[in-house]
C-alpha cells in the first residue's frame, strides 16, 4: 500500500483558490489511510467553509475512483462529467494525481495529499512502516528477509554503523530499531551468520534511476524478436 498523509488544509485551499467549481476525487486503491468518498466529502465541506470565511462561494462535488493510477478506470469514471468543473482535487497518492492529469488533460488536477512510501500496516502497534523501496535489485534473500535499503537510514549494504545504540538507530532519536541488528538477529536465529559476514559490493543505481520504466508486454510476447529478425 502507498502510505499518504493529508496536506495542511491551508495548503490545499491555496492550490484551488483560483477556482470556484471543483471536483474532489477520492481513491479506493491502495493509499492508506483510506481516502474514499466520505473523505472527499468531508474535505469538500472544509474547503467550502474556508472559502466562506473569505467571502467566496465554492461549488464542489465528491466522487471516488476505483484506482486513479489506472488510466482506463480513471478515464471512464471521470471523463463523463469532469469538464463541468474548473479543477480537480485528488485524494490519491502521487501516482493517481499524475495519471488524472494525463487522462483528463484539459483540467488541472491538484494533490490533496503527500505520498510517503510504499509500506505495510502494523495494526497492533499502530504504525505504517516502509519495508521495500523498490530498488530494482532485491537482496533480502541475503539479509534474513529484512531490507537494509528501506530499513536503514543510511541504506547500508554492510552495516550496522556506529550510530546504532542498544539496537536502535541514531536517526529518529533511538526510537526505531536498527535494521542491521534485526538482520543479525534473523540470520543468527537460522544459523546463517555466513550471510551476515558476506561482503556486498556497491549498489547499481541504474536499476532504480528515475523515471522508472518497464515495458508491460515485454516479457510475455516475442514481438521484439520478430522486429530484430526484420532488421
Amino acid at each position: 500500500m502507498i502510505i499518504t498523509e493529508l496536506k495542511d488544509i491551508n495548503e490545499i485551499y491555496e492550490q484551488i483558490k483560483p477556482y470556484s467549481k471543483i471536483l474532489i476525487a477520492g481513491c479506493d486503491g491502495c493509499c492508506q489511510p483510506p481516502r474514499s468518498l466520505n473523505e472527499a466529502k468531508v474535505l469538500g465541506q472544509l474547503l467550502e467553509l474556508k472559502a466562506r470565511t473569505e467571502g467566496k462561494k465554492l461549488i464542489w462535488k465528491a466522487i471516488t475512483v476505483l484506482r486513479q493510477c489506472d488510466d482506463r478506470i480513471a478515464a471512464t469514471t471521470c471523463r463523463p462529467f469532469a469538464e463541468e468543473y474548473e479543477a480537480i482535487l485528488s485524494l490519491a497518492c502521487g501516482l493517481g494525481v499524475v495519471m488524472m492529469n494525463k487522462v483528463i488533460d484539459n483540467i488541472l488536477t491538484f494533490p490533496a495529499q503527500n505520498s510517503h512510501f510504499g509500506g505495510v500496516q502494523n495494526s497492533s502497534e499502530n504504525f505504517y512502516i516502509e519495508y521495500c523501496e523498490a530498488c530494482g535489485d532485491c537482496i533480502i534473500g541475503e539479509t534474513g528477509g529484512v531490507c537494509p535499503r528501506a530499513g536503514c537510514a543510511k541504506h547500508l549494504s554492510n552495516g550496522p554503523c556506529g550510530g546504532m545504540v542498544d539496537g536502535m538507530c541514531e536517526v529518529g532519536g533511538y526510537t526505531k530499531p536498527c535494521a542491521w541488528v534485526d538482520i543479525w538477529k534473523r540470520l543468527k536465529k537460522f544459523n546463517r551468520l555466513d550471510l551476515f559476514k558476506k561482503y556486498r559490493g556497491p549498489r547499481d543505481f541504474r536499476l532504480s534511476t528515475s523515471p522508472g520504466y518497464k515495458d508491460i508486454y515485454k516479457e510475455y510476447t516475442n514481438e521484439e524478436e520478430k522486429k530484430e529478425e526484420k532488421v
Binding site: 537510514a153 543510511k154 541504506h155 547500508l156 549494504s157 554492510n158 552495516g159 554503523c161 550510530g163 541514531e170 536517526v171 529518529g172 561482503y199 559490493g201 556497491p202 549498489r203 543505481f205
Partner: peptide, 21 residues
Amino acid sequence: DHTALGDHNRARAVYDIDSTQ
C-alpha cells in the same frame, strides 16, 4: 553521522557507497 542529526537536517544524505565499499 546522519545529516538528520546535524545543523542542516533537511539535507539529503548521500551514502551512495558505504564505508566497507
